[in-house]
Amino acid sequence: MSTIIYGIITSVILALYAVGFSLTYGISGLANFAHGALYILAGYISWNLMNYLGLPFLASAPLAVVACALVGFIIYWGLLLRVRGIPLSELVVTFAAGVAILELLTWRGFYGISYSLPVFVEGGVEIWGVAVDAQRLLVIAVGVALVVLLYLFVHYTKIGLAFRGMAQNERTALSVGIESDWIGALSLALGSALAGLAAVVVLPLGMMESSVGYEVLIYALAVAIVGGLESTPGMVVASFVIGFGQRITASYIGPKWMIIVPLAAIVLVLAVRPSGLFGKFKELEERV
């Protein structure tokens, strides 16, 4: 029973790691390798706001999310704009930006066991005989709410619709007045904000240090690759496959083998079905 419940929690956490990454990629074809760095940056910013400015976590967390969005926007406008359209350079730029952020945090002494964020909600409940703390339930709630909100956002708001237009056909989007660079920058800002949001709800579950950034990037990549880039249902399913894979590995083989699961999943999927479980092959009927 505990495998199932904690499997669900792990899966939702993975989905939260990946959602921003997938979203940015889906809209502007941009693989943001600074995703993990932005994640941990949110933790760092909100820790500092709390400990140096004395803000409550409820105030510092949203500020950290906004800060992440800004950093994402700046990465796009300041760095990416020059190499936009060359995938390899985009990758190098975002990865470099990510490493720069992470190493900056390490240099500032952001490692070890001294940093953690407080939980939003105290206490816990028992579900079918398994003790679950309230913060983990909050993580699930945020994950579910996020999926619903994002769906509504991309289907019913102007910017969201522009995102969908850009994702599908950039030139047509251009010819109805949608500006590709503006939308690209917004998509990276939104993806970064989602990394920040994931950070402030997930990080309170444990310690934080700068190296977590690399881990989160690997998880986000694993989920995106297994699910098929650009596919939202794919992302959710992949989170559950890897999440449960990890839980089962931890229960029956040993916790130290958990990190193998996402890496093995990447290798396996790339070998067997490179476009991912739900990746888009151009359907025959669409080739009119």
């Binding site: 289907h155 102007k158 969908r164 599908q168 030139r171 047509t172 989007a173 010819s175 109805v176 949608i178």
Partner: peptide, 26 residues
């Protein structure tokens, strides 16, 4: 000045109504 490009470039994954709503961006 609005261009309708050659080879009917539509937003393929969206339904017809959503195509038109995306195009009403401005």
């Amino acid at each position: 000045i609005v261009l309708c490009q050659e080879r009917h470039p539509v937003f393929r994954d969206s339904d017809v109504l959503e195509n038109l709503r995306i195009a009403g961006y401005l």
